[in-house]
């Protein structure tokens, strides 16, 4: 098994002691398979317990451990240390955020902007006691599924050149979520969301530098979402809306077996419907 001693240059900043961030080096014995996050835990447990960083799930689901590793925003838990092929690894907090301590950044701006674009399904039917589920085809699902995998880790905002100067910009994450909900066939608030993103602080601050999509650890591709928002704001979008599931067909297909007997006595046995999506306009 490959073993190597790697020097970690980590940017430190303690708000009550330091005026400026500075670098501190740690030597970590790295084995094959160790992620950057495991190395950071090694440092915290064995070398310097004062170092601060965020992490939670350690498997690329929670988006807590985004940091600036070797000049790129990455998830520490999804970055193999030896794959960086360098004997010194530089770790900084994500740029374009305020630093709280060491590698911990203040993500409030990210979440505030995320909330601004109404990141939830808005439909008159959904708010008034829904009686059935919505029907959505696989094709309708794939219109937005890619953008649904956003972790809110904030890598894209760290990569975005507009974010480097503009404090009003909504940012790639929020705009990608606006697109995600606008293209969801169950949602009917496309116009309301365009009022928010079709502004001087919304999609028009994007100039397609593409760094957000380059940096995204989940393949969410915010740049594509923003360009498609631009396209829809110019040419309009032809969107399929989905409706409630229709009634069950009376004659069931013979190859579909009976549902198992209900395990709870008295439970209702309404099954899934087979309604088709309705076409409509935004």
């Amino acid at each position: 098994m490959e073993r190597k001693t790697i020097v970690f240059k980590i940017q430190r900043y303690a708000p009550n002691q330091d005026k400026e961030p500075y670098f501190k080096s740690y030597e970590v014995p790295v084995e094959q398979g160790m992620t950057i996050l495991e190395c950071l835990w090694y440092i915290k447990e064995n070398l310097d317990s004062t170092i601060s960083f965020r992490s939670s799930c350690r498997m690329g689901i929670c988006g807590s451990c985004a940091m600036f590793i070797q000049g790129r925003p990455r998830l520490a838990c999804e970055t193999q240390t030896l794959e960086l092929k360098s004997s010194t690894i530089e770790i900084k907090p994500l740029p374009n955020y305020d630093i709280i301590k060491d590698l911990v950044v203040d993500q409030r701006n990210l979440f505030r902007n995320h909330k601004k674009v109404k990141p939830y399904i808005i439909s008159e039917k959904a708010t008034s006691n829904p009686t059935k589920e919505y029907i959505q085809s696989v094709a309708q699902l794939e219109q937005y599924l890619q953008f649904n995998y956003c972790l809110k880790c904030g890598c894209c905002l760290a990569a975005c050149p507009t974010m480097a100067t503009d404090t009003n910009f909504l940012g790639p994450q929020a705009l990608a979520q606006a697109f995600r909900y606008n293209t969801d066939s169950r949602d009917r608030a496309g116009n309301a969301r365009f009022q928010i993103v079709d502004t001087f602080e919304g999609i028009w601050r994007c100039h397609m530098a593409g760094a957000c999509s380059d940096a995204c650890p989940k393949g969410v591709d915010p740049a594509m979402a923003i360009q498609l928002l631009k396209r829809h704001s110019i040419f309009g979008s032809r969107k399929e809306y989905s409706d409630y599931a229709g009634p069950l067909p009376k004659n069931r297909r013979p190859d579909i077996p009976d549902a198992p007997a209900p395990t709870v006595k008295g439970a209702r046995t309404n099954g899934r419907g087979n309604g088709k999506g309705k076409k409509g306009r935004r």
């Binding site: 100067t165 503009d166 009003n168 602080e201 601050r205 100039h207």
Partner: peptide, 13 residues
């Protein structure tokens, strides 16, 4: 104007 809006950071344009 785009460059100015991105650097000056006014609440209104």
């Amino acid at each position: 104007r785009s460059v100015l809006l991105e650097t000056i950071n006014m609440k209104h344009h």
